[in-house]
């Protein structure tokens, strides 16, 4: 950081001083990372619930389609849905983690490229 005399001197000379201690920049980066992670956690949670809900609904409809005489809520249908939801859960976790971690990073990199290096 500049001392008071240095700052006054550069102000008089009209020089712009645009670098600053690494610590200040790093804290800014940390704030950004935490902010992004918080939003991503929210979206991860929302998408988790939403996608599992749609999957459950489509499984129920599939069951009703295969067994039209036994359509409607029943213990068999619930067991069917439960069994197929297990595999889906593992796949979904992998895909969502990848999407939710990689996508914002890619977007930020693109913005930085277009703003600063074009």
């Amino acid at each position: 950081m500049l001392s008071r005399c240095e700052r006054k001197g550069s102000a008089i000379a009209g020089i712009t001083y645009t670098s600053e201690p690494l610590g200040v920049r790093m804290i800014g980066l940390l704030r950004l990372a935490l902010f992004i992670l918080a939003i991503e956690a929210v979206f991860y949670g929302l998408l988790w619930v939403y996608l599992r809900s749609t999957r459950r609904e489509s499984l129920e409809r599939e069951w009703d389609r295969r067994h039209p005489e036994k359509a409607g809520p029943s213990e068999e249908r619930a067991a069917f849905v439960r069994r197929f939801m297990q595999g889906y859960g593992a796949r979904l976790r992998r895909r969502l983690s990848w999407l939710v971690l990689v996508l914002p990073l890619a977007v930020i990199m693109t913005i930085i490229f277009f703003v600063n290096y074009r």
Binding site: T16, T18, G28, L29, R31, L32, F35, I108, I111, I112, V115, N116, Y117
Partner: peptide
């Protein structure tokens, strides 16, 4: 001016350039 790290999300740090 350079933008801050968080808002607006332009991540501009090459204002001298």
């Amino acid at each position: 001016e350079d933008t801050g790290w968080v808002w607006p999300p332009y991540f501009k740090y090459t204002s001298m350039d």
